[in-house]
Deep mutational scan, measured.
Amino acid sequence: DLRKKIVDLHKSGSSLGAISKRLKVPRSSVQTIVRKYK
């Protein structure tokens, strides 16, 4: 699940930009998912 991957990467200390590059999703999507998770 993409959300879980993003949250896991964020927990392990990756920046939003790094996560978005790695998973090839827009940075804004990463930000939204991380914000919802918090």
Score class of each variant (00 low, 15 high):
K38M: 14
V7Y: 10
K4T: 10
K38E: 12
I19V: 03
S14W: 15
L2D: 02
P26E: 04
L16G: 03
G13F: 03
K24L: 07
S28T: 08
S15L: 00
S15P: 04
S14K: 13
V7S: 03
S14R: 09
I19R: 01
R22A: 15
K21Q: 07
V7I: 15
L9Y: 06
L2Y: 08
D1G: 12
Y37P: 04
S12I: 07
L23E: 03
S15D: 05
R3H: 12
R3N: 08
I6K: 00
S29L: 15
L16S: 06
Y37S: 06
Q31Y: 10
K36P: 02
S12L: 13
L2R: 08
L9S: 03
G13D: 01
V30Q: 01
D8I: 11
S15G: 08
G17M: 12
D8S: 12
P26R: 09
K36E: 14
R35P: 02
D1M: 12
R3D: 09
G13Q: 02
V30F: 01
K4A: 11
H10F: 15
V30M: 00
A18Y: 12
K5G: 04
K24D: 09
I19D: 00
V34P: 00
I6G: 01
K5M: 14
T32A: 15
V7M: 12
H10I: 12
I19W: 00
S28A: 11
G17H: 13
A18H: 08
A18Q: 13
D1Q: 11
H10S: 04
S29W: 15
K4H: 10
V34T: 03
D8R: 10
Y37K: 04
S28N: 08
L16W: 05
K36R: 14
G13E: 00
R22I: 15
L9F: 06
P26Y: 05
S12F: 08
I33A: 06
G13V: 00
G13N: 04
D8L: 13
V7L: 15
L9H: 03
K21H: 08
Y37I: 07
S29I: 15
S14N: 13
K11Q: 10
R3V: 15
R35I: 06
I33W: 03
V25R: 02
I19T: 01
L16D: 06
P26V: 04
T32M: 14
D8K: 10
K36H: 11
R35G: 08
S20R: 02
V30L: 03
Q31E: 12
S28F: 08
D1I: 11
Y37N: 05
S28V: 08
V30W: 00
K4N: 09
S29F: 15
S12T: 10
D8E: 14
R35N: 10
D1F: 12
K24P: 00
K4L: 07
Y37V: 06
A18L: 08
Q31L: 09
I6H: 00
K24W: 05
Y37D: 05
K21V: 07
K38F: 12
V30G: 03
I33C: 00
L23M: 05
I33N: 01
R22W: 10
P26C: 15
D1T: 12
G13Y: 00
R3Q: 10
R22E: 09
I33P: 01
R3F: 14
S29H: 12
A18S: 11
V25F: 01
K11V: 11
S29Y: 15
S14P: 01
I6T: 02
L16P: 08
K11C: 06
G17S: 14
S12M: 12
H10Y: 14
Q31I: 09
P26L: 06
I33F: 04
K24F: 06
T32E: 13
H10L: 13
K36T: 09
T32P: 03
V34M: 09
K38Q: 12
V7K: 04
K5A: 12
S12G: 09
K11I: 13
S28Q: 12
S15A: 05
K4P: 02
P26F: 04
I6M: 04
K36S: 09
K24V: 05
T32N: 13
I6E: 04
K4D: 10
H10W: 15
S14E: 15
P26Q: 07
G13P: 01
L9W: 07
V25H: 01
Q31C: 07
Q31F: 08
I33Q: 03
L16V: 14
S12W: 07
K5Y: 10
I6N: 00
S28I: 07
R22H: 13
K21T: 07
V34A: 02
L9E: 04
R27M: 13
K38Y: 14
K11A: 09
V30S: 00
R35S: 10
V30Y: 01
R22G: 08
D1R: 12
V30H: 02
R27Y: 14
R27G: 03
L2E: 04
S20H: 04
G13R: 00
S20P: 02
V34W: 06
D1H: 09
H10D: 04
S14I: 15
R35T: 09
S12E: 09
S29K: 15
V25K: 04
D1W: 15
L9I: 01
I19M: 03
I19G: 00
L23Y: 07
S20C: 06
T32F: 11
D8H: 11
K36W: 14
K38L: 13
L16H: 06
P26W: 06
H10R: 04
V7P: 02
V7E: 09
Y37A: 06
L23D: 02
V34N: 02
H10V: 09
K5D: 05
L9C: 10
S14Q: 14
K36A: 13
G13W: 00
R27A: 06
T32L: 14
S29E: 13
K5W: 14
K38H: 15
K38N: 11
V7W: 13
V25M: 08
L23W: 03
I6W: 03
P26N: 07
K24G: 11
D8Q: 13
A18R: 05
L23G: 01
R27Q: 05
K36I: 10
I19N: 01
K38A: 13
K11W: 05
K24R: 11
S28R: 13
S15Y: 02
I19E: 00
R22D: 08
V7H: 06
K38V: 13
V34H: 03
R3L: 12
S15T: 09
R27N: 04
S12P: 00
S20A: 14
D8G: 09
G13A: 02
D1V: 13
P26A: 11
I6V: 09
R27L: 15
K11D: 07
G13T: 02
I33V: 13
L23N: 00
L2S: 05
S15R: 03
S15H: 03
K11F: 08
L23Q: 00
V34K: 02
R35V: 06
I33S: 03
L9Q: 05
L9G: 01
V25W: 04
S20L: 01
V30R: 04
G17P: 05
D8N: 09
T32S: 13
L16K: 05
G17E: 08
R22T: 14
S14V: 15
K5E: 07
V25P: 00
K24A: 09
A18I: 06
K5F: 10
H10A: 06
D8A: 14
D8M: 14
P26K: 10
S12A: 14
S20K: 01
I6L: 00
R35D: 10
G13C: 05
P26S: 10
D8Y: 13
V30I: 10
S14H: 15
S29V: 15
R22Y: 11
K21D: 07
R22V: 14
Y37G: 04
I19P: 00
L2Q: 05
Q31R: 13
R22L: 15
Q31W: 10
K5V: 11
G17K: 13
V25N: 01
S20F: 00
K38P: 05
S15M: 03
R27S: 05
K4G: 07
R27W: 10
L2A: 04
R27H: 07
